[in-house]
Amino acid sequence: MPRDAAPPMTSPADDPWAALRRFTPARIGLGRAGDAPPLGAVLDFQLAHARARDAVHAALDRVPLQAALGGLPWLAVRSQAPDRGTYLRRPDLGRRLDPECLPLLPKGEWDAVFVLADGLSATAVQQHAAAVLRATLQRLPGWRVAPVVIATQARVALGDEIGEALGASLCAMLIGERPGLSVADSLGVYLTYAPQRGRRDSERNCISNIHRSGGLAPESAADKLAWLMTEALRLRLTGVELKDEQPPHLEHGAPGVGSRPVLGSGGPSADRPF
C-alpha cells in the first residue's frame, strides 16, 4: 500500500469532507473500495432507491385515508389507467376519468372540490394530504365544499374532468410528487379555476415540496393554499395571472426551470399536464 493511500477507516476528525457536507446534500466524499464505492454507500443508495420505488408503486390505502378525513364526506374515483404499469406508460389515460365513475360525482354549486390523488407517490398522499386538507378547510369558513374525491391512477389533469362534472368553481388537487432519492413522500397541490378538460399548465397554480423532511410543512402549505383559493375565487382565475406573494418554490430548485425545460417529467411534479 503506498504510504499515502487512504486508510480503510478515518475518524470524523480526519475527514475533510465533514465540513463540506454542510454545504450540499450531494453524496460527496464517499470513499472507495478499489474503483467502487464502499459497501455502506452502495447500501445507502439502494435503500433510498428502494424507498422511492416503493412509493411509486404503493397502492393508495383508502381506509386509513378516510379515517384521517375525520368524518368529511368522500367518494372514490379512478382514471382510465387500469394498473400501475399502464399508468406510468400512458399519462394520457391517467388524465381521463373512468366513465363508470362519472355518475358518482354530484353536480352542485360548489365553491371548491378537493381531490386527493395518488400521482407518483401514494405514500405522500397517505402521510400529508389529510393534514393539508383539514388545515385548509379550517382557514376557509363558509365555503361550499364538495365531497372529498379520492382518485387513483391519477394525473394532475384528472382534476379538470372531476371539477367539471361537479360544477365546482375551483379544483384543488393534492397529489403525490415523483419520489427522489432523498424524499419519497413529497406532496404537491395544483389549483385550477373553472376546471374543465383541456386546461393548460399555465392556467394552474402549484405548491410543491410539501413534506416533513425539510420541505413545506402541511400547516404552511394550508396557509398558502387558502390564500390562493380566496384570491382565485375573488379574481376568477388561476395560473400565471395569479401571482403568489413570494417567488414560487425556487428555494427547492424545481427541476426543469433551468437547462432541461421540456424534457417531459424531469421535474419533481407528479405530472406535466401538457
Binding site: A26, R27, G266
Partner: peptide, 18 residues
C-alpha cells in the same frame, strides 16, 4: 458523472464519479 450517482438538483440518477 455526479457525486454518488445522485443528482440532488435535477432529481434523477446519473453516473457516479466511481
Amino acid at each position: 458523472t455526479v457525486p454518488g450517482a445522485d443528482d440532488v438538483m435535477l432529481g434523477y440518477q446519473s453516473g457516479a464519479f466511481h
